[in-house]
């Protein structure tokens, strides 16, 4: 059973649809008791970093998340803002993040493409993504070309390069996915990324189910 943490930010319908499609039972909850007892967690979310953190605090989810992930070792995957919240903080806000992964979230600098046109922020669209060898998320990943759907203005920078699970390029090379033991995250939206996302989620949840 995958527990999707609903703390009131973002669109969770497509995550539910995708998990249903690949046959992974899931519940959507905002109840800290469900989070504490979870077998696996997804921390979704879009929007402002501080808003995400404040909502986690207000809804009493901070302790529940820490208890589940740090003490019980429940596997967690952050998606989009949910991934950024795994880090220690963000240039977008003032509040500390969950701090489970060492590093900071930075805003994309002003950039232009080869033709001298400014790159629009947010980075929105399908971008080729390069999994890092040896990471659990992309274990036995046999795609020649991998692409995912991204929508974001900020990107994570891990203190330890070993926590980077995939990279992509938008003006600069940036971290598309993080993984530190049982804690992982995707800046992209696997739930909206066709067979690539379906493959990733199938792989993660079938693997964890049999582990």
């Amino acid at each position: 059973m995958v527990t999707i943490v609903n703390y009131g930010l973002g669109n969770l319908g497509s995550i539910v649809n995708m998990l249903k499609k690949i046959g992974v039972p899931n519940i959507l909850t905002s109840d800290p008791a469900d989070v504490v007892a979870a077998e696996r967690l997804i921390l979704p979310g879009v929007g402002h970093f501080d808003k995400g953190m404040s909502l986690l605090h207000e809804r009493g989810l901070m302790d529940a998340l820490n208890e589940a992930v740090l003490r019980r070792g429940v596997p967690v995957m952050g998606i989009c803002l949910g991934m950024q919240l795994l880090l220690e903080g963000s240039e977008e806000g003032k509040l500390p993040g969950l701090g489970w992964i060492k590093g900071w979230v930075h805003r994309f600098p002003n950039m232009q493409d080869e033709d001298g046109k400014p790159l629009k922020i947010p980075h929105m669209g399908w971008t080729d993504t390069y999994p890092v060898a040896g990471k659990r998320l992309f274990e036995r990943w046999d795609e020649d070309e991998t692409r995912f759907y991204f929508v974001h203005s900020f990107h994570a920078v891990c203190d330890d390069p070993a926590d980077v699970a995939a990279t992509a390029h938008y003006g600069i090379d940036f971290t598309a996915s993080v993984e530190h033991g049982h804690i992982s995250g995707c800046q992209f939206h696997p739930e909206k990324s066709h067979r690539y996302g379906m493959k990733l989620l199938t792989h993660v949840y079938r693997q964890e189910a049999t582990a």
């Binding site: 600098p109 002003n110 950039m111 232009q112 493409d113 080869e114 033709d115 001298g116 790159l119 929105m124 669209g125 399908w126 971008t127 390029h169 938008y170 003006g171 600069i172």
Partner: peptide, 11 residues
């Protein structure tokens, strides 16, 4: 300011 590879637009 850094220059970058072109991005494929969404279709």
């Amino acid at each position: 300011m850094s220059t970058a590879k072109k991005q494929l637009p969404r279709v």
